[in-house]
Amino acid sequence: MGFFDGYNVATSGMSAQRTRINVVSANIANAQTTHTAEGGPYKKQNVVFEDVLLNTGKKVNSNDIEQTNSKDSNYELRGVAVKSVIQSDAKPVMRYEPAHPDANEEGYVAYPDINPVTEMVNLIEATRSYEANIAAFNTHKSIDTKTLEILKA
């Protein structure tokens, strides 16, 4: 494990959680959006993470990064990354509102299947994960600082 590996893991976690916070915030903001540019209600989005691993068996330099989920290989954890942001395939929630401009012939309006309470829990969880990565980064920094003080003495 290199000197900066702990920093790389923590910063990759912060970056991934920042993306998750942005996506969850967009879900909350669009929970009542009944009409988008594509037509129809807003579709909830979810973030998919993947582990970023370093191939220790064939390492050529410090930038030789491989991405895999195989447990039977010579890989060391390098961090986490956002694999993709996917749209939910959940059916919209139909509400009877005949006066709404987006109502169909029967008076029903299609709303996104987004539960604001669940999204707030996801937002709090992502924020706490971000804060945990900040704490890990700061802990690693203080360990390195103390190590340098000991070596200097």
Rank of each mutant, 00 (worst) to 15 (best):
G2K: 11
G2F: 06
F4K: 02
F4D: 07
D5Y: 04
N8M: 08
V9L: 13
A10V: 06
G13L: 05
S15F: 01
Q17H: 10
T19I: 14
T19V: 15
I21S: 07
N22L: 09
N22C: 00
N22Y: 08
A26W: 03
N27T: 13
I28M: 05
N30Q: 02
A31V: 08
Q32A: 15
T34G: 06
H35L: 09
H35A: 13
T36A: 06
T36I: 12
G39Y: 09
G39L: 10
G39P: 07
G40Y: 02
G40T: 11
P41F: 09
Y42I: 12
V47Y: 01
E50P: 05
E50N: 12
E50R: 15
D51L: 07
D51K: 14
D51W: 01
L53E: 02
L53D: 05
L53T: 14
L54S: 09
T56E: 08
G57Q: 13
N61L: 05
S62D: 14
N63A: 15
N63D: 15
D64R: 11
I65M: 07
I65V: 15
I65D: 01
Q67F: 08
T68N: 07
N69C: 00
S70P: 00
S70Y: 02
K71S: 10
K71H: 06
S73P: 00
S73A: 11
N74V: 12
N74G: 12
Y75H: 11
E76C: 00
L77G: 15
L77M: 13
R78K: 14
V80W: 04
V80S: 03
K83Y: 00
K83V: 02
K83L: 02
K83F: 01
S84W: 00
S84G: 00
I86D: 10
D89N: 13
A90R: 12
A90S: 15
K91W: 01
M94R: 14
M94G: 09
M94D: 01
R95D: 00
A99H: 12
A103Q: 04
N104F: 05
E106V: 11
Y108K: 08
Y108W: 03
Y111M: 06
P112Q: 02
P112H: 06
I114S: 02
M120I: 13
N122L: 06
L123N: 04
I124D: 04
I124F: 04
E125H: 13
A126G: 09
T127G: 12
R128G: 04
S129C: 04
Y130K: 03
E131Q: 15
E131I: 09
E131W: 04
N133Y: 07
A136K: 08
F137A: 08
N138I: 04
T139V: 11
H140T: 13
H140C: 01
S142A: 11
S142F: 06
D144H: 14
K146V: 10
K146S: 12
T147Y: 05
L148K: 08
I150Y: 07
L151P: 00
K152H: 05
K152Q: 09
